[in-house]
Amino acid sequence: MAQSQRETLARIEQYVTAARELQDDPMDLDASATEARLEQTVRELQERVRGQQAALEKLRISSSINVEQAAYASEDPREKLTQLLAVKEAYNQLTPTAPYLPPKSSILPALLAARTLQQNIHGSKEAITSTQEQMTKTEATLKSEEAHLRDAKLLTESMQDRITRLRDQHEDRLQKTPAQLAKELIAAKRAQKVHYDEEMDTLGNALNEFIEIHLSAMVAAEELGGPVVGDMFGVDNDTLASGFTKKGKAKSGKKPVSDKLRQRRIDQIWGDKAAAEEGETLTEAEAADNELQQLIGKLFTTLISSAGGKAYHELERDSAASRFLVRAKIAQFHPKDARKLRLIDFGRELDD
Results as ranks from 00 to 15, higher is better:
S4H: 09
R6P: 00
L9M: 08
A18T: 04
A19V: 03
R20Y: 03
D25G: 01
M27F: 09
D28A: 07
S32G: 11
E35D: 07
R37I: 02
L38P: 02
L45C: 04
Q46W: 04
E47A: 07
E57M: 07
K58W: 06
K58D: 11
S64T: 15
I65T: 06
V67C: 05
E68C: 04
Y72C: 02
E75D: 14
Q83M: 04
L85C: 08
A86Q: 10
Y91S: 03
L94N: 07
T95R: 15
T95Q: 11
T97G: 07
Y100N: 08
Y100Q: 11
P109I: 02
Q118I: 09
K125T: 15
E126N: 08
T129F: 03
S130N: 13
Q132R: 14
E133I: 09
L142Y: 05
S144P: 00
K153V: 10
L154G: 01
L154E: 14
L155G: 10
T156Y: 09
E157N: 11
S158Y: 02
S158K: 12
Q160G: 07
T164N: 12
R165L: 14
L166F: 11
L166N: 07
R167I: 05
Q169I: 13
H170G: 06
R173G: 03
L174N: 13
T177L: 13
A182I: 12
L185D: 12
I186K: 14
I186S: 12
A187C: 10
R190P: 10
R190Q: 15
A191E: 10
Y196Q: 12
E198Q: 09
N205T: 15
N205R: 13
E212P: 00
S216K: 03
M218C: 04
E222K: 04
E223V: 00
P227V: 05
P227C: 03
P227Q: 05
V228A: 14
D236I: 00
S242N: 03
K254M: 06
K254A: 11
P256W: 00
L261T: 08
Q263P: 00
I266K: 02
K273V: 09
A274I: 00
A275D: 05
A276T: 08
E280Q: 12
E280V: 12
L292V: 02
Q293C: 10
L295G: 05
L299Y: 01
S305Q: 13
S306G: 03
S306L: 01
A307L: 09
A307Y: 04
H313R: 02
E316C: 04
E316N: 05
R317C: 07
R323L: 08
R323G: 00
D345C: 01
R348S: 13
L350N: 08
